[in-house]
Design a protein around this nucleic acid. Structure first.
Lengths: 293, 293
DNA sequence: TAACAGGCATCGTTTTTATAGATAGCCGGT
DNA sequence: ACCGGCTATCTATAAAAACGATGCCTGTTA
């Protein structure tokens, strides 16, 4: 069995079709057919069921599939490890929550890029759940997400600590009196999967409210805009509000410390090779964690 | 990078020589030279330092080496997983301590072989330490060794429980009086690495004796022969003595329960794929553990 | 029902890649 | 200076992979 065989196999399994896999692999269909056939002969067991509309993976194929992916990931790691001469360079795909990207990262990234101009940083923003998935499937080398992260294949390093505060329009009544009025509450939140959103819903329900309306946004600015426009309230890191331009036009109300404090951690795969670029990046983060905080 | 590339690389690293690796790989030297060269070009970093007496691994090579081995092991696992159609067959290399192989295994193996004639059982005997190494480097699929086994990459399942007893010649005085006589004690033990040997030495020293002479043997029969011939005493599982022909001509003396009882566990790599043959074998063991004990 | 479209298998040709074998160069020991 | 062990390089040959064309099967559509 060969590495390219495994790649062919994975592609066919993913696409559910030999022809589509051939396209994706930049080759011709007959080629893929042949190699899958050879592979099946060598293994002594069919990997795909052929039917008129593509192929489907057999049980044997199902068993092979996770290995194929793991091996591919390991090989990628191996090449990285071998090439790593100690100087930080090459691509470094990093994920971050919207708020972290907006508030904490800019100074860190600026400094890092100045020190290591050959590293091609690529920041992807998204909610915690999505980011974790991407780290797990190797499409991100690491990500800034909200603690706690408990997953056997991940390691988390605390980097920042945020105080979550309620944001509401200046004209908004204070929370207690609003609550007494018993009006329908609108919360403005990040798209599903964001852990701050969970916090807010948890807080709101602990206060005995059922949030009747939800508005979802993908950016801090979008949320703050809505809050300022008196659409509803939100829960955001204090720093995200104070450092934003719109932040000046919203009122901040603290919530109890125990529910407010949340750590932002940097997660990586436990088994992934941390190359020079990654090590340098983590050093920058650690520095930022100490000084900036 | 290709799987056979990794195999070539591993071989050269192991042999410290391209020529020797070529022999080992059943190919010619020029071939290996070329492929290593190509590999280095593709990676962009040299993997070996060439000098007049062979080659040595560079730092980059050192980083690559563990990956090469892990990938090879994974690929082997993957093929096994894919081929595994649920029927137990194929090679099943198993390790066992000498005493386990002699006393506990024969009935288990006989029954297992009757049920699964297509499994090519291959029993290797050796001391616990050696067996664990072989399981760790994938040259054994599993092994029967003495508990406790604490290693993050291994899982252990208790299978048998042995009572260790002192074995001595019929003419031997009882231990207490022998001790008073203050004569030089000879212990007959397995070769280094055996955990029973450790037990014996521990017991003997706990009794205030320093074992002055040691005789090493590789087999139960050899040890019992010596014991019967009044050469010295030994510590063996009770069953190993009673079931042996020579066992009748030695006297058995029990030692305190706390020091006597030892579990025999079956260990496997945590991450290795347990194929049908292995699963069937473990089922047989579990059965033997319940009934036979 | 007949034409059609999408999908896989197969075949012959071409191109690429791996292998074997021979040779040359290098270095240390005798 | 020579020999032995080692690696690099070259060439021819063999093997394998890729390609493109074709055929077959099967649902879909007019």
């Amino acid at each position: 069995m060969d590495l390219s065989d495994l790649a062919f196999f994975s592609a066919v399994a993913r696409c559910g079709s030999i022809s589509k896999a051939a396209q994706q692999l930049n080759t011709v269909q007959s080629n893929v057919t042949m190699r899958i056939k050879l592979m099946e002969e060598r293994l002594g067991t069919p990997l795909f069921n052929r039917h008129s509309r593509g192929v489907s993976v057999t049980n044997a194929g199902q068993r092979l599939l996770p290995y194929a992916e793991q091996i591919a990931a390991l090989v990628a790691d191996a090449t990285r490890a071998a090439c790593d001469d100690g100087t930080a360079r090459g691509p470094l795909p990093i994920g971050a929550m919207e708020t972290t990207a907006a508030v904490r990262l800019p100074p860190v990234l600026a400094k890092f890029h100045a020190q290591h101009p050959d590293v091609e940083l690529d920041i992807t923003t998204g909610p915690t759940a999505t980011l974790l998935e991407k780290v797990l499937d190797h499409s991100l080398s690491g990500a800034f997400v909200a603690a706690p992260v408990a997953h056997p294949e991940l390691v988390a390093t605390p980097v920042f600590r945020e105080e979550l505060v309620l944001a509401m329009a200046k004209s908004w009544p204070d929370i207690a009196s609003y609550r007494q009025a018993n009006r329908t509450l609108t919360v403005v939140v990040f798209r599903s999967g964001c852990s701050y959103r969970q916090r807010l819903e948890q807080y709101v329900s602990s206060q005995g409210w059922l949030p009747v309306r939800r508005l979802e946004f993908g950016t801090v600015e979008g949320i703050l805009g809505c809050v300022a426009a008196n659409v509803g309230i939100s829960l955001l890191p204090r720093a995200a509000i104070t450092r934003s331009a719109i932040g000046k036009s919203v009122r901040i109300e603290a919530i109890p410390q125990r529910e407010a404090m949340v750590d932002t951690v940097f997660v990586q795969r436990r088994d992934a090779y941390a190359g020079a670029a990654m090590r340098a990046f983590m050093a920058s983060c650690a520095e930022a964690a100490e000084t900036g905080n």
